[in-house]
């Protein structure tokens, strides 16, 4: 059977594969949980990863009668973000307007780009990388990487690259934080993200954590042609560390 058809068919619920979940007795996380994400202009590759991440987050949310909403805004449209009650912003660049909104506690930013700014509600999915340094590669196989690569390819129709992984990871961080912090409120999520017990699985074989000093996600990095992790720690982590 064609790989893509099979995956899509399974998730969509073809005949015989059903969402038979009893809401009457289902263990709900919290009443009416709704994660509202704001997406600012990003590259196509990052957008594809975010779209895939939202699909997986919605699958998980449906287990708990929860929902995940993604809205798209112009780069400086912070009023639109607030009006739409989006509390987490995913971006590649952090404009002055978004940085001010984060400083005011209106939003928490998950930055998937390389433009670093420092602030208590500004979190970065990766540090500034040197040329050829990667957070992901579609040839990774261990630690569930093959499964992630295959799921992404089945949905997106292309191999998961660096930007796509960052987009997927941003949504995963947002969803899990919202659920485990039991809040969509930006400061509550920020507090959760820097707890020493908070870890994420990026399919890289070890727990991934946000450095509380820099709010950069610590993780293995790779180089093209070499899939063994390199340079996991660095002296140049982010804007908060000067």
């Amino acid at each position: 059977m064609d790989r893509r058809f099979f995956i899509r068919g399974s998730i969509a619920g073809l005949t015989g594969i059903t969402w038979r979940h009893s809401s009457a007795v289902a263990a709900r996380l919290r009443d009416n949980i709704e994660l509202r994400l704001a997406l600012l202009p990003v590259s196509d590759a990052l957008r594809a990863g975010i779209t895939f991440g939202v699909q997986e987050a919605r699958h998980a949310a449906r287990l708990f009668d929860a929902s995940v909403v993604l809205r798209t805004f112009a780069a400086d449209d912070i009023n639109g973000v607030v009006d739409e009650r989006c509390t987490i912003v995913i971006s590649e660049n952090i404009s002055d307007a978004i940085a001010r909104a984060a400083a005011d506690g209106a939003v928490l930013v998950l930055n998937a780009g390389t433009a670093m700014r420092c602030g208590p509600l500004l979190f970065h999915l990766a540090r500034v990388r040197s040329s050829g340094e990667l957070v992901w590669h579609h040839d990774l196989e261990r630690f569930g990487a093959a499964q992630l690569n295959a799921r992404y390819e089945a949905v997106a129709g292309s191999a998961m690259n660096d930007a796509a992984w960052l987009g997927w990871m941003a949504v995963k961080v947002a969803w899990e934080s919202c659920v485990r912090a039991r809040s969509e409120e930006p400061r509550a999520i920020a507090e959760y993200l820097v707890r020493d017990t908070t870890v994420f699985d990026g399919h890289k074989g070890r727990p991934l954590r946000f450095d509380p000093a820099t709010r950069v996600l610590d993780q293995p990095y790779y180089r093209n042609g070499d899939l063994e992790p390199v340079n996991e720690t660095t002296a140049s982590k982010g804007a908060c560390e000067t």
Binding site: H21, V25, A26, G144, Q147
Partner: peptide
Amino acid sequence: AETSNTVSVIDIPKREVVANMMVGVR
């Protein structure tokens, strides 16, 4: 479920998922 960090509870006679739990990571 490794990626969603969940445990689904299936009622086998009913053939239905009756609860879901968030658990530790992976």
